[in-house]
Design a protein around this nucleic acid. Structure first.
Lengths: 229, 229
DNA sequence: CCAAAAGTGTTCAGGCTACACCCATGT
DNA sequence: ACATGGGTGTAGCCTGAACACTTTTGG
């Protein structure tokens, strides 16, 4: 039996800007829409919020359903409420952004010929609804946060080299960084554990692998420590 | 005639954390609820979003209706979507925070014996719903933003002294600041115009009045300038 | 042995911190 | 005259920026 309300209500959705990094470029995960409106267009993963689930639950469910991703870093981004953003009816969308370790997670996007696919952020196809705006907002937020919170690690494999980390920063922030200064500063935080492992991946000296220690960061944060790059 | 939907929908509200500063304390504007639930309790101003208005429009309308405030600095804060945050039914609330020049605006809270009233942020009464959480979130955001964006001026009168500005920073951030260093830095930004006026308000030397120049800030921001205190 | 990325210290300049006294006014 | 907040300069320290060569490996 249909539900009745005295006044018309906006519908509520969640959408996620899922970022990944593949050692060369920043990428975003998009879904090809199977239904109208914007049928056949690419869009951010997302969908309607059920009446008995929190917003966070809704994003996680949609991500799992549409992309196979789970246990990713998630943070609320902004809520988009323009009246005409959905041509059908009034739809308010709570946008999140997610950071994914592309190398570790084997997303559905990689495996089958599905309707989920990674695109370079710098070269996305036209997007449905106002998703280009949402993506842009997510990108700005990522750039802002990367500088003063240790979230870059969420885009790298569990074990990574300092060069990988530096390339990530250079790519996302769009600036060149001095190698020696970068290492000095990052290691100075004492948040990385140097492992007894190296990666051997080419005709050059192997690089020492490191791992981020989140527990240590939490402890330092409570003492008023500030991460900043 | 009532509206029908195939699935039950969450209701959508907006709430605003309205901050003011009265030269001594940081304050927040609260409304005494006239209706159940939480009848008689204090709550953040806010209300239901109409199906034909944007979220921003909804906050501004509610602020005007409930507190008489208009033309305040407004920014979206966070969207709260816990399932049980409203005991009646599922209600998702998009929270905003607002900064008000208490001295300039004569709010309804000041004038009549209304149900709107300013409280010190440090000593609020028990709040309805999850509004204590929202207030806390707003406070953290204000503290964060104050340091790297010139929004403190939104809490001061159009013309203010450097001491007023410093006291604002000290109060909100909860730290003592060296007078000479503060003035050097603030004036160094070249965003304040010294006026040919002083305020005379006690048995001591009158202070020079200043005015913030937003246009200048916009110009500098485009050139990659960073405000930071 | 050559190409390619990893790794490593020092110097300099500019910004931040700490700090103490005189000034203008009202009572 | 005194109490009260307004206003001002400098010196040491520390942090951030610039900068070049050696090391280790694969081919």
């Amino acid at each position: 039996m249909p539900h009745q309300y005295e006044f018309p209500r906006a519908a509520l959705t969640v959408d996620a800007v899922v970022f990944g990094f593949d050692e060369a470029e920043l990428k975003v995960l998009l879904i090809k829409r199977g239904l109208a409106p914007f049928k056949g267009r690419w869009a951010l993963p997302g969908g309607f919020v059920r009446v008995q689930e929190t917003l966070d639950d809704a994003v996680r469910r949609e991500l799992e359903e549409e992309t196979g991703l789970h246990q990713v870093y998630l943070e609320q981004l902004y809520t988009f409420g323009e009246v005409k953003r959905d041509p059908r009816e009034r739809v308010v969308s709570v946008a999140y952004y997610a950071l994914v370790k592309m190398a570790d997670h084997s997303t559905r996007a990689a495996t089958d010929a599905s309707d989920a696919q990674w695109f370079p952020v710098a070269a996305t196809p036209p997007l449905a609804f106002d998703h280009a705006t949402i993506l842009q907002t997510g990108l700005e937020r990522l750039r802002g946060k990367l500088r003063y919170q240790p979230i870059g690690f969420e885009l790298l494999p569990e074990k990574f080299t300092l060069s990988q980390l530096q390339h990530l920063y250079e790519t996302v922030l769009g600036t060149a960084i001095d190698k020696r200064n970068f290492r000095k500063k990052v290691l100075g935080f004492d948040l990385l554990e140097a492992l007894d492992e190296t990666n051997r991946d080419g005709p050059h000296r192997p690089a020492q692998l490191h791992r981020f220690n989140p527990a240590k960061y939490e402890r330092l944060k409570k003492r008023g420590f500030l991460f900043e790059l």
